[in-house]
């Protein structure tokens, strides 16, 4: 039991240290800047979109119809 708790503690300590390394060396920022954002920009740039200029400009119906 003691060994098991120490093992868990050890694993948590390693995770904590890894997270600190991510934080201290700004690895989250670097990942988003160099990898994630360019990927997302490419996706949005190539996305097919509705042409809202084709929306008719009419009178609008009320949401609730009068009885």
């Amino acid at each position: 039991m003691k060994k098991f708790i120490l093992k868990i503690f050890g694993i948590l300590a390693v995770i904590y240290a890894a997270l600190f390394a991510v934080f201290y060396y700004d690895l989250d920022g670097k990942f988003i800047y160099y990898i994630f954002e360019p990927f997302m920009v490419k996706r949005f740039d190539n996305m097919k979109r509705e042409d809202n200029l084709k929306t008719p400009y009419d009178m609008k119906e009320d949401v609730m119809k009068e009885e």
Binding site: G29, Y33, F36, E37, M40, V41, F44
Partner: peptide, 13 residues
């Protein structure tokens, strides 16, 4: 949405 996908994950910066 671009305003979501491009923007908000950078929030800690």
């Amino acid at each position: 949405y671009r305003w979501m996908g491009q923007t908000y994950l950078t929030v800690m910066h």
